[in-house]
């Protein structure tokens, strides 16, 4: 710092203009700093978004050597009138409801338990967070091993010692008989295992942000622990809990990695979540690019609708 200011003092007017010419103006720096990021985001996100909107109105297939033909709302109409598609959406909805619901309850309880510090609580909290940091597809792989009916630990730990009378979680069978949706709940369990820590982390940050003096005031006001929990803790944590629920709901509609690692959509279409089906339509064998684009847009609209509900809630909370 001193070297520069001294140099400036020693050199008189001659140096100053040259320095100014070399020096970028703040305006130029601003553009230089922002545009690379914006251009990349536009090229890799905005452009594909618009391109896929266009494709969704065509019958384009990525492997056919044929220019796309405009078909209007045909793809959308096909998807929305296909009972199979509604089934996939319903499966996804059920999956979202169960996973997000359980994650919310378990994550909230865990956060309440973990929030008070004890010796080693930092380490324990970190260990609880490990599942969400893992690669979903890898998690899917080793849970597949866990679920294996003959040598997996899952049935073993549940107390089923004889493979022939034990549930085959991923095959959706129990004692040889098919059980509807057992596979879906098996996948959901892994999702819950993996992402409950995420909800816990968000709720925990909400709990930690509640100032101590509110509880002190409540204690002075002779509120019982129960009264404090419902009147202070819950309302104060609500916004962050809602963020967690929103993120997880969106993720459920994007859910792909875990299912691919565990079941690939099977058995039959029991675990065919909408994002898995999208992949199947877009790439695997079918290559129905136009129709898949339309489906992607429908998913996007669902996600935007969910986000909107949340934003409306948040704004309302701000209003009051």
């Amino acid at each position: 710092m001193t070297a520069i200011s001294q140099a400036q003092k020693e050199s008189t007017g001659q140096v100053q203009p040259r320095r100014q010419r070399r020096e970028l103006s703040d305006r130029a720096i601003l553009n230089l700093f922002i545009w690379p990021t914006l251009i990349l985001l536009i090229a890799w996100n905005l452009f594909p978004l618009i391109y896929s909107l266009f494709l969704s109105f065509t019958d384009y297939s990525a492997i056919a050597n044929k220019a796309p033909t405009w078909v209007g709302f045909q793809n959308y109409a096909d998807i929305l009138s296909d009972p199979q598609m509604w089934k996939y959406f319903a499966t996804t909805g059920r999956y979202a409801l169960v996973t997000v619901g359980m994650q919310t309850i378990l994550g909230f309880s865990l956060a309440v338990l973990v929030q008070e510090k004890f010796k080693g609580s930092g380490l324990v909290t970190t260990l609880i967070l490990v599942p969400m940091m893992l690669s979903p597809v890898v998690v899917g792989m080793f849970w597949k091993l866990m679920y294996n009916p003959s040598f997996g630990y899952f049935n073993f730990l549940l107390g089923f010692r004889n493979p022939s009378t034990a549930p085959e979680m991923l095959a959706g069978r129990f004692a040889g008989q098919p059980v509807p949706n057992l596979a879906l709940w098996a996948v959901a369990l892994v999702d819950i295992w993996m992402w409950t820590p995420f909800v816990m982390l968000l709720v925990l940050s909400g709990l930690k942000a509640i100032p101590d003096y509110l509880y002190e005031a409540a204690v002075i006001d002779r509120a019982s622990s129960w009264f404090q929990f419902w009147r202070i803790t819950v309302p104060q944590v609500m916004p962050l809990l809602m963020i967690a629920i929103l993120f997880r709901t969106i993720e459920a509609f994007k859910s792909f990695d875990l299912v691919m690692g565990l079941t690939g959509g099977g058995p039959g279409d029991q675990t065919e979540l909408i994002a898995v089906n999208l992949y199947r339509q877009a790439f695997l064998g079918q290559w129905r690019t136009g129709r898949a684009s339309a489906l992607a847009y429908i998913i996007l609209i669902v996600i935007i609708a969910i986000s909107n509900l949340y934003i409306r809630y948040l704004n309302q909370a701000k209003e009051d």
Binding site: P211, Y213, L214, E216, A217, A218, V219, I220, D221, R222, A223, R231, I232, P235, Q236, D320
Partner: peptide, 19 residues
């Protein structure tokens, strides 16, 4: 327990329940 003491406390930063 603080609630057994029949005292009221006024805090520097008011400690009003914001919600």
């Amino acid at each position: 327990h603080p609630s057994d003491r029949d005292i009221a406390f006024v805090f520097q930063l008011y400690a009003l329940y914001p919600h």
